[in-house]
């Protein structure tokens, strides 16, 4: 078998291993997928009436539901990658990784397995959130293509954040640290266009909110799902995602190889 074929087959084996872990350890998955749903309910039913009124005249809870779903989709991505960091950090403390290092397996497959498993988990979580949102009355003007585009942009940002979480998980000295460091990712959609228009924010915060990476992704998804001009948002969103993905990927690989070297010496 060629090197590429080995890489693909080893990554598939690792993906299966990680998916089995998710199934055997469902409490984490349930918590991470459940969090955005709880947020959705709280924001729509507790804050939604008031926040919806702020969106414009004659607007209310229902308008706010339509407004907030893209933000919550980002929260969903950020929530699931908390689990990625924990899983990676836990894995690195387990003896099985030392065994993998002594075997002739494709170098990156351990990490690729984690990334692919987390990506599938994220897509499932996004599916669940959209299902719940539709159940609550979320109305989308999007056609199949726009939906596909929205899912595509979310997938790309998920890949970026998952690699970032992998790197954070690898850099953490303990599993506890790994479960804390990616927490800021859940906070970032709040400090962007996820929950309220950035124009309502005070000076300083507003600039941060407008230029941080979550905002163009949120804006693109919102434009695709609820109508509106996508404009430059998509390009900025794609650029941010690719940049974060690449940087995190290189960082993660370096950390992984360094650990590998440390064990062998």
């Amino acid at each position: 078998m060629s090197t590429l074929a080995h890489t693909v087959s080893d990554s598939k084996v690792m993906l299966r291993r990680n998916l089995t872990h998710q199934l055997r350890y469902p409490s984490v998955t349930i918590m991470l997928v459940g969090l955005p749903i709880v947020f959705l309910l709280v924001f729509v039913y507790v804050f939604g009436g008031q926040l919806g009124a702020g969106l414009g005249p004659h607007q209310g809870r229902h308008a706010y539901l339509d407004y907030v779903v893209p933000g919550l989709l980002l929260i969903t991505v950020a929530s699931v990658v908390q689990g990625t960091a924990i899983m990676v950090a836990t894995d690195m403390t387990a003896g099985i990784i030392d065994r993998f290092r002594t075997m002739a397996i494709a170098r990156a497959s351990v990490l690729t397995g984690h990334v692919l498993a987390s990506l599938l988990q994220t897509l499932a979580a996004i599916g669940v959130l959209i299902g719940v949102a539709l159940g609550l009355g979320f109305t989308s003007s999007a056609g199949p293509l726009a939906w596909l585009g929205a899912i595509g942009i979310l997938t790309l940002s998920a890949i970026a954040l998952i690699w970032l979480a992998v790197a954070l998980g690898l850099s953490a000295k303990s599993v506890e640290t790994a479960s804390n460091t990616p927490m800021f990712l859940i906070l970032l959609p709040f400090l962007g266009s996820g929950f309220v228009p950035t124009a309502t924010m005070p000076e300083g915060l507003r600039q941060f909110a407008q230029y941080q990476p979550f905002t163009p992704v949120t804006d693109t998804v919102r434009a695709l799902l609820t109508g509106g001009a996508v404009g430059d948002h998509a390009i900025v969103a794609i650029a941010w995602s690719c940049g974060i993905a690449l940087g995190s990927y290189l960082w993660a690989i370096r950390l992984y190889n360094r650990r590998r070297a440390a064990t062998l010496n």
């Binding site: 055997r24 387990a94 003896g95 099985i96 030392d98 065994r99 002594t102």
Partner: peptide, 14 residues
């Protein structure tokens, strides 16, 4: 080669 370390290298969740 095959390596069996001092600390068991098995996957606990499998």
């Amino acid at each position: 080669i095959g390596v069996t370390g001092q600390f068991s290298a098995v996957d606990n969740l499998l």
